[in-house]
């Protein structure tokens, strides 16, 4: 097994480096993205502060054009 692995490394050193770099970048990005998303959802919670059921039920307009 270990010999096989080593052989692969020798055969494709460039590919493997690229793959590792990509992984690091995308996991950092995911983390950042999830944090951003969480804070945005918190902000959305804030704009929904009042009683949703009551607000939606009360939202009645006369028809316009």
């Amino acid at each position: 097994m270990s010999t096989e692995k080593q052989q692969e490394q020798v055969n494709h050193p460039v590919d493997e480096t690229e793959e590792i770099e990509l992984n690091v970048e995308s996991s950092e990005m995911d983390e950042e993205f999830v944090e951003d998303l969480d804070s945005l959802l918190d902000e959305i919670d804030e704009i929904l502060e009042e009683d949703s059921q009551e607000f939606v039920e009360n939202y009645i307009q006369r028809g316009g054009q």
């Binding site: 959305i44 704009i47 929904l48 949703s52 059921q53 607000f55 939606v56 939202y59």
Partner: peptide, 19 residues
């Protein structure tokens, strides 16, 4: 109701209250 409320809030023109 929260999701319907949010649908409405998307269109609120007062920025602090608007999705």
């Amino acid at each position: 109701p929260q999701v319907k409320h949010l649908d409405l809030k998307y269109h609120n023109v007062r920025q602090a209250e608007s999705l």
